[in-house]
């Protein structure tokens, strides 16, 4: 991968990351992020289901 200096000016001060290091890191990424974000979303959905089925519905119909 090559990093190009940009027209857009946003990278006038490129960071000092080495491309080889970045390549190595990107062999693992985004496995950890997927695991963490996936776990968070799963917990939220399970929590939502529990409230919907065990708190809301037993409190009676809404018509």
């Amino acid at each position: 991968m090559t990093v190009t200096r940009q027209h857009d000016g946003s990278t006038d001060e490129p960071d000092d990351l080495k491309e080889a290091d970045l390549e190595r890191a990107l062999r693992l990424v985004p496995r950890g992020a997927a695991a963490l974000a996936g776990l968070a979303v799963a917990l939220i959905i399970v929590g939502w289901l529990l409230v919907y089925l065990l708190v809301f519905l037993p409190r009676g119909p809404v018509n």
Partner: peptide, 25 residues
Amino acid sequence: FVVAAAVTLMLVVIVATTLANALHP
């Protein structure tokens, strides 16, 4: 895809219980 599945699951539960019990605010 994961996000769509999660949101769809929620909507399916809402729509199913809404139709089954004729729920509406």
